[in-house]
């Protein structure tokens, strides 16, 4: 996650990605490593197990630039990623979290 100013953040178009993944050690590392080694900014990450804990859901708040479709294809190739859904930046999942991130 690169440090961006509030102004820069507001200026960038963003997207929310919803990933269904297997829940075991290392999965987060595979997912975030993919973004960091391509210097692709991830602004927010939210992960919780779902159901009986065998699966997790990862929510990523990312910049929307020309590389995003390629990033999504790369994420889809990961063995432990079961599904990827793309949403607009106004998705409720990060909006509702704002109260926990007051300066």
């Amino acid at each position: 996650m690169n440090a961006l100013t509030q102004n820069e953040r507001n200026a960038l178009a963003r997207a929310v990605l919803e990933l269904d993944v297997n829940n075991h050690a290392g999965v987060m590392s595979h997912v975030v490593g993919l973004f960091s080694r391509r210097a692709y900014n991830v602004d927010g990450i939210l992960v919780m197990p779902v159901g009986d804990g065998g699966k997790s859901r990862i929510w990523l708040l990312v910049n929307e630039d020309a590389r995003l479709p390629q990033m999504i294809k790369q994420v889809e190739k990961l063995e432990d990623v079961l599904a990827v859904r793309r949403h607009g930046a106004d998705h409720a999942v990060f909006e509702r979290l704002e109260e926990f991130f007051q300066a």
């Binding site: 050690a25 290392g26 590392s29 595979h30 490593g33 080694r37 990961l78 063995e79």
Partner: peptide, 14 residues
């Protein structure tokens, strides 16, 4: 080893 090989394997296991 697991961390080192994430970017250079198709998949890896510990």
């Amino acid at each position: 080893t697991y961390g080192l090989t994430i970017p250079i394997t198709k998949h890896n296991f510990l």
